[in-house]
Every structure is written in structure tokens, then in C-alpha cells.
Design a protein around this nucleic acid. Structure first.
Lengths: 130, 130
DNA sequence: ATTTGTTTACGAAGATATTCGTATATTCAT
DNA sequence: ATGAATATACGAATATCTTCGTAAACAAAT
């Protein structure tokens, strides 16, 4: 499976992807109006970015109507994994658990979340014993 | 407390920091020779980068002898935390445990490491009950 | 002292990412 | 049809990051 590797989105591109992951297929204006809330950029800036992302294969678009509809062409999970792997590699010297300890140490996680993580660890250990 | 905030190192800057964290205070040449093993760049490129990092406050240097000695001015842990926090924020929508699950799922961790994480989780839960 | 090798300093080219102005097309209301 | 509003396309300015050429300073060897 798998065609060519997905390339790493830039900071701005990630902001756009987040909107599309959350809201689903949207027009440039819709995306732009969300972005405007947290940063200030012109409309054509958002447009241009989304066009470039489309060229790169990060977004797909439906141009059948005058106002194009864009959607993420890469999944949130794949992108998260890609960026996370890179961070483990370049920032945590390849040690995922080092990163995990840091992450747990500096953020309040709810009891439920912690429980979920523990269960997960147990499963992994069971796997390993086999 | 807190003096001005530490600014985010770029990709290349991070490579240099990693060398200095590992080897301690070093000359440009020493750093460069390590970098050469994994990438190819000219000596003056490494020099320039380290000079810029010094200006930015990422490195400190001892210029008392002809050949300057550079050292990291930011700690590995602080930098890791900074980059990790940003990733949790921008890539994992603020959910540290989401990131943790991803990290555990996609990397083999040794039994010892997993055990360490579990102990840590227990401690956190103990804290929370208080 | 002159040459040779190593170092820093400086400036600028090249690459990539971000921003926006302007032109052109389309739609809709009048 | 004309004008106002909104969309896309395009090109280019700006900013940031990365790279390196070249010159000047210095040190060591001959």
C-alpha cells in the first residue's frame, strides 16, 4: 500500500488542517473566519495557503461550484504520528518513554485519562510476555 | 521569577544543541565534525549558525582564547518541555494524554521503561487523591 | 619574516515560508 | 445590462532560515 510519503505541514498549514479536521470540508472563507479569531491575516493569505496545500496534496478540493470546497487530504492521526515521531527522534534522542514522562509530568491529566493510559500499558506488557 | 522567554530553536540549531548537550562545551570544529557524520555542510555554515545562536542567547561562549569555546545556554530539559508543550498545544489540541497514547502505541519501549512510566502514573494518582 | 593552516567576521546568495496587492471571473440584486 | 460583492489566480514583496565565499586575524612551522 501507501503512495509517496506525506510531507510535513508547516506551522500555518497545520493551523488550517486543524480547522478542517474539526469542521470538515469548508470554504476558504469559513476557514479564514476561524483563523481570524486567533491571528490576523488577510483573506487572500489564507486562500493562497490553501491553494499551495492543495498543490502539495495536503488538501483536496471540490471545484465544481464557483466557491471551492476544501477538505483535509491527510488524516489527523497520521499527521500527529508523523510529527510526533520526528520529535521523539530529534528532540528526545529516540526515546519515546522519555517524552512520555515529560508529557505526564508537566500537564494535568484527568483521572480517567491516566487510568486509560495505565490500562494501555498493561496491555502492552501482556503483549510483550507472549 | 523568569527572565525573558527562551526562543524556539530551529531545526539546525537543535542539531547543534544536541551535540553540545551530549559533549559539553566544544569548539566549532568539534561540533562540526560530529555534524558532518550525518549531514554535509561547510565549516563556515556551522560557525555562522553557532554565532547566530550566541546572539540569540541559545549558546554562551568563552572567547578568551583564539579558538572560542561554545556551550549550550539553554538546558535540554527546558527545551524539550518547550517544544513538547507547543506540540501538545498545536498538534494534539491540548491533550497530553492523547499524545502519550500515540507515543506508546507506535514505539517499542523496554519493559523497564514501561515499568517506570507505570510507577510514575501511580505517584501522580496518589498525589491527586490528597 | 614568510608561508601555511586554522580561526573568526562579514556579507550576501539561495531556499523556503508567509503575506498581500491587483487583476480577472462570477454571482446576484437592481 | 450595470454595479456591488465575493471568489479565484497570479505574481511578487517580505520574512526567516540555511548556506557559503571571501577577507582579515592569528598561530605555528620553516
Amino acid at each position: 500500500m501507501s503512495a509517496g510519503k506525506q510531507l510535513k505541514p508547516t506551522e500555518s498549514e497545520l493551523e488550517i488542517l486543524r480547522v478542517l479536521w474539526e469542521k470538515g470540508p469548508s470554504t476558504v472563507r469559513e476557514v479564514h473566519e476561524i483563523l481570524e479569531q486567533s491571528k490576523d491575516a488577510g483573506y487572500t493569505t489564507t486562500l493562497k495557503l490553501m491553494q499551495i496545500m492543495h498543490e502539495k496534496g495536503l488538501l483536496q478540493r471540490d471545484a465544481s461550484s464557483k466557491t471551492h470546497i476544501y477538505a483535509a487530504a491527510v488524516s489527523q492521526e497520521n499527521t500527529q504520528r508523523q510529527l510526533l515521531d520526528k520529535m521523539i527522534d530529534t528532540v528526545f534522542n529516540g526515546s519515546a518513554s522519555q517524552l512520555v514522562l515529560q508529557a505526564l509530568g508537566n500537564h494535568k491529566s484527568s483521572k480517567e485519562e491516566l487510568e486509560k493510559i495505565k490500562q494501555y500499558l498493561n496491555e502492552i506488557e501482556k503483549q510483550q510476555r507472549k
